[in-house]
Design a protein around this nucleic acid. Structure first.
Length: 576
RNA sequence: GCCCCGGUAGCUCAGCAGGAUAGAGCGUCGGAUUCCUAAUCCGAAGGUCAGAGGUUCGAAUCCUCUUCGGGGCACCA
């Protein structure tokens, strides 16, 4: 319809002002859809835009345009208003037809609206497997999973992935922490060492390994603890590998990582977050992907050697300075892994790579782009979404996020307390580039304050009305409903229908801007209109025609609420 | 020093590919339940959209500066 009206305007402009399409393209023809029906269903500002160019008052122009405007049956009226807007009013039949579309397509209404379908690799969370996921990761998880659902809804093919940092120093430290815990468990007295991982999960893993029959020589020598915490830890790792043998160390390391990974997967899946794949950093080494990437970079003339290290000339691609890829001692940097990993993503055939990262990684973005460019890919294929931080509150009281030993509040604690529905909704209700204050009290309140329940309740009320309809011996007749849509002429009904009609463009816009929170806002508005409608109108009435028409409308509202909530990973209870 | 994000009602926030009177909820005040779920609804009061310039017929929205707050600038991961 939008295109049709635009076409009409173009014709009218040509006739009344002698403006051709090229001239028009310069100015840009916009047609906006209006929320409140004060200004019609669509409006155009074209007369205002043309006024200065044609040196003619906008109102006069608008009148002339309308004068030569054809009006098809779907259009009831076109009028010009005060500053120079042209407002279009659709016929009632046309406006109501969206309900028929929703009845026909059901939950597929608004699906596949993206004009260009892409293969997307969406990477999110990717936290080191050295501890349970905390409330900050929770936001990444909720956002990433919802974005995946949203992009799929819009018609894209989406693969979600978790990059598992299962190699490197942090993993050695994790493994060391577990081994020392095993020794402790066997009665060895050990001083606390800074920089090691603590927490019940370390204990659990060490005990599980002991049960599996892993043994550590108790006569292990702890080297003198001199130097900085980092130096001590590194010395311990080296010593441990020597004493127990790097083979056993590696075995324990593998066991530990796989147990940690299981823990992460459970944290995520219990939060209804689905990762299609876990990509192992270690596999980059074993499959030679890092050397491969280095070769490509060198071949493309984007690397050089200096001070015994291999440097990527990332400054060539917009980074502040060049970066080390292979260290002096021959070990590759984390950045090297990332170059190889992102190149591999492209090789797997994805058009678009989306990374959800913490906002503290923003300095890393240009480096990633440079890495991608230096392997011969387009930097613009990478879309990094930076996530701002989360602060927990209990009412007005800020909750200490981490203890002195560096333990964060686990995300599982959060969603166990407030429930998965509330947690997911709250996490996603604000734009990713804004700080999130997560109020645990608010998330569990059962009233108007709490948008999750407000929306769910709207849907539950609809289900209840449908039941009541049956209970009174009526059978919903879609045919009668469709035939009487024109009777839905209350202002509130028109507002609801208009909002339902905006669902596809909401999906499109929020998927394009990765703004999952727009879905949450949309649902809030829809629920609000519904509750108001509920309070003012009787649905199960004796009049068969209006009853079926209204119930049809309610079914449409319910369809959209359920679909929208599902994008957010929130359930739609039938009863509350 | 450089870079990213933000400042909208007393509070928490929507609105931001420019558009017509800036919206919700809470809180305050006043109402609604013989009726399909009151986890609801209706009404009132409440604003220099941080400040100053600029672009435009038109700016909360775009640009510049200032200011306040959060975060970042490794041969760490």
């Amino acid at each position: 319809m939008e295109e049709k009206i635009k076409g009409l305007i173009i014709d009218a402009l040509a006739e009344s002002q002698g403006i051709n399409e090229d001239e028009l393209n310069e100015i840009g023809l916009e047609l906006s859809r209006n929320a409140n029906n004060d200004h019609g269903d669509f409006s155009s500002n074209i007369a205002l835009k043309l006024a200065s160019k044609l040196k003619s008052p906008p109102m006069k122009l608008a009148e002339e345009i309308i004068g030569s405007l054809e009006t098809p049956a779907e259009l009831e009226l076109a009028e010009c208003v005060k500053p120079g807007f042209i407002n279009f009013y659709l016929s009632a039949e046309k406006k109501h037809s969206v309900l028929e579309t929703i009845m026909k397509h059901g939950r597929d209404f608004g699906s596949s609206c993206a004009p260009e379908k892409m293969r997307v690799l969406l990477e999110f969370v990717s936290a080191n497997p050295t501890g349970p996921l905390h409330v900050g990761h929770g936001r990444h998880a909720a956002f990433g999973d919802s974005l995946a659902r949203l992009l799929k809804k819009a018609g894209h093919e989406v693969f979600t992935e978790y990059y598992l940092n299962d190699a490197g120093r942090q993993i050695d430290i994790l493994c060391l922490s577990v081994i020392l815990e095993m020794l402790r468990d066997e009665g060895l007295e050990l001083k606390n060492i800074n920089g090691l991982y603590k927490g019940t999960y370390i204990k659990e893993i060490s005990q599980a390994l002991i049960k599996e029959g892993f043994e550590i020589n108790k006569k292990i020598l702890i080297p003198k603890l001199d130097g900085s915490a980092d130096e001590i830890v590194d010395a311990l790792i080296l010593e441990m590998k020597n004493v127990i043998g790097s083979e056993l160390f590696q075995k324990i390391s593998d066991k530990t990582v796989s147990r940690m990974t299981k823990l992460l997967k459970d944290d995520l899946s219990d939060f209804r977050v689905k990762q299609d794949g876990f990509y192992s950093e270690k596999s980059l080494f074993s499959k030679g992907k890092i050397e491969e990437a280095c070769e490509i970079v060198k071949k493309n003339g984007n690397a050089y050697e200096k001070d015994g290290a291999l440097w990527l000339e990332s400054s060539k691609y917009g980074d502040d300075k060049d970066r080390v890829v292979i260290r002096e001692d021959g070990r590759s940097t984390y950045f090297a892994s990332d170059i190889a990993y992102h190149h591999d993503k492209k090789m797997r055939g994805f058009d678009l790579l989306i990374n959800v990262l913490g906002s503290d990684h923003h300095g890393y973005v240009s480096r990633l782009e440079a890495g991608l460019a230096s392997t011969g890919n387009k930097a613009s294929d990478l879309d990094v979404i930076l996530m701002q931080f989360v602060t927990l509150y209990r009412g007005k009281k800020k909750i200490q996020m981490s203890t002195r030993s560096g333990n964060f509040v686990p995300m599982r604690d959060l969603y166990s307390e407030v429930g998965v529905d509330a947690a997911r909704f709250f996490y996603v209700s604000r734009s990713h580039d804004q700080h999130l204050d997560f109020d645990l009290d608010l998330a569990t309140e059962q009233n108007n304050n709490n948008p999750v329940y407000y929306i769910q309740y709207a849907n539950a009320r609809i289900k209840s009305v449908l039941n009541e309809n049956k209970k009174r011996g009526y059978v919903f007749d879609e045919g009668i409903g469709k035939a009487n849509l024109v009777k839905l002429d209350l202002t509130i009904e028109e507002e609801i229908i208009s909002l339902l009609g905006k669902y596809p463009e909401t999906i499109l816009k929020s998927s394009e801007t990765r703004a999952v929170n727009k879905i949450a806002n949309y649902l809030k508005s829809l629920a609000q209109l519904f509750h108001s409608y509920y309070g003012s109108t009787k649905f199960v009435s004796e009049d068969e025609e209006i009853r079926n028409a209204r119930i049809l409308l309610l079914i449409c509202v319910s369809t959209i609420i359920e679909d929208g909530l599902d994008i957010l990973g929130v359930s739609s209870p039938l009863k509350m």
